[in-house]
Design a protein around this nucleic acid. Structure first.
Lengths: 330, 330
DNA sequence: TCTAAAATTGCAAACGTTTGCGGTAAATTT
DNA sequence: AAATTTACCGCAAACGTTTGCAATTTTAGA
């Protein structure tokens, strides 16, 4: 079946295309009578404006691009869910591409976004992206970019991210408050700035406010690694009374080990992590965690995007605050 | 900065727009010499074809729409990841919208898809969608629809889904093989056909091949409900020696209860579920499960879509097969 | 050298909108 | 009744491509 167009409506009504167009959008120039006629026919013929024609004509697309390392990820999917909601409210649609942490894909995805003339892109850098030229190219095209989560260091970009240092400090506070004597602190890939930031903040805080507490710092790149690391370190020397997991991934490994060894939480060991809350709710007792909500981050990113679109350049780095959520594991 | 267009290239090269257009796509009519010139300038000027103009002209969009109840979902996000991969390989981009299980949103999303003249849509019905007219409308527009996971009953549609009955039967087989005497079987929302199918198949198989095994069937709508149901039923009368969870959601509730009561798996109770594998891997021992891979389903859906686009109508219902994955919980 | 065929390139219409501007008829003011 | 305003509507260009066809140039055949 052929789509109904303005032209078709115009022919059937013996009107000009422009009149039909204006009638459809309640232009004051058009009389109420014709407006009604037009609307009636448009409805009965199921008229749907052709987005491409509009975008071609108006040079603006009502589509946002989103680029994440992976969609299948507890954090990113809630981020996406958030901007999807906001987008719909504001009449935008979303185009989502994943980089799989591969800079080549990243490049390609950005290209697709440019070709589709998206009105803006939400970007999470892939783990080891060095070259930001592609993003420069977006700016040249006047396409605003809001970076989230993994963001570039330079402060000429608009970025939103979690308050990484705050997260680590809040975790440290709670560990101290528990009266921990020996803590095992597990962090992620040491090459990632997020790992560095969190570790640094955590370490400094502990050394300053609880210098007598013995801390062991480890970096692990997967649940597997975390699990085996835990097994290894829990065995030798005195047992830890508290364990801190920087991410869900790490927490998962730790908890498997804890279950395997049948260690009682929180009696024999306290557990605390940084998470968006889903994984911690899987265990009994619920794991206490410092909340980093992908959902909140998404909402924040969206207002930044809107600001960028409306008010020209709004360069800034906003962070969503962290808060402690009591589980029962501390 | 103003985008470079064919017109611009043509002017600078003293060529016609059509020649430039053809040169860029290696049309045999164009001489190698001019082709090279054109490509060179296009590169240096960062020419990027305007997708909207192309789509307007060619009436085809290279975009697929995806509609899911929620992106933030272990099953759907892996489904999405799969079709995203395939799409990229085939030069398509994805437009993803979530229905939040609300038929109104579903309606609206479909509308956006139509307006954007997507080349096809992957749709998962929202839980209680009754009216399929919207999807009929897509067909009228010659937009193929591939339903996945939650699909309509009528067989005039193209659908892919998990082999629900097989899943349930495989689970039942393993339960029988374990020599279970008393099993607690937990299913999801009884209004959903997926729950009905799985329960029916499970029940029939058990009654046929293990009539002496005592089975208790329950429906729960959330992790919470599953958890309390487990607590309630494990308390009174004789303990169950095996529990079957139809979904991840249910498994989560069950496992929380099991942890709380400190019941040993698999010694005191066997656990088996239907899952894509992530949740079962979170526990020690890993939970044995019947695999329903969103990823596989995505791949399958994509070939169906391609078939539909290329070869006209290909109405059929394909299912991705289920297989048992040994954990250590049985 | 002339002609026919082959190799190149350009013209112009079309895709479906939006929108500045000009035009006509009706309503209002003098 | 003439002049002016107001209300309504249509013309046509433009957005950036693609593509059938015609036009031109080059090459080959005789």
């Amino acid at each position: 079946m052929t789509n109904t167009t303005l032209k078709l409506l115009a022919q059937q009504l013996q009107l000009s295309i422009s009149t039909v167009s204006r009638a459809l959008k309640d232009h004051p120039d058009i009389s109420t009578a014709t407006k009604e006629k037009v609307h009636a026919l448009a409805n009965s013929l199921d008229y749907e404006p052709n987005a491409y024609a509009i975008q071609l004509r108006t040079q603006s697309s009502k589509i946002f691009g989103v680029i994440v390392p992976a969609i299948a990820n507890l954090f990113y999917d809630s981020f996406i869910a958030a901007i999807e909601e906001e987008s719909r409210k504001n009449g935008y649609a979303l185009m989502i591409l994943q980089s799989s942490d591969n800079p080549d894909n990243e490049l390609n995805n950005l290209k697709i976004f440019r070709q589709n003339r998206v009105s803006g892109v939400f970007a999470c850098l892939s783990a080891h992206t060095q070259n930001l030229d592609v993003y420069e190219k977006m700016s040249e095209r006047d396409i605003p970019v809001v970076f989230f989560d993994i963001v570039p260091k330079e402060n000429k970009y608009t970025k939103v991210r979690m308050a990484d240092e705050r997260c680590a400090v809040i975790a440290a506070e709670n560990i101290i408050q528990r009266g921990a004597k020996r803590v095992l602190a597990l962090f992620g890939d040491p090459a990632l700035s997020i790992s560095q930031k969190r570790k640094l903040a955590f370490q400094q805080f502990m050394e300053k406010y609880a210098p007598k507490t013995h801390c062991t710092y480890l970096h692990t790149n997967s649940s597997q690694e975390a699990e085996t690391a835990f097994h290894k370190h829990i065995g030798k020397m005195q047992k830890f009374d508290t364990v801190f997991a920087m991410t869900d991934e790490i927490l998962i490994g730790v908890m498997k080990a804890i279950q395997a060894l049948n260690i009682k939480v929180p009696k024999e060991i306290g557990v605390i992590s940084i998470s968006n809350g889903f994984i911690p709710s899987l265990y009994h007792p619920n794991i206490s965690y410092v909340e980093t909500s992908g959902y909140e981050l998404g909402k924040l990113a969206f207002v930044q995007m809107l600001a960028n679109i409306k008010g020209g350049k709004t360069l800034s780095e906003l962070t969503v605050d962290a808060k402690f959520v009591e589980g029962g594991s501390m």
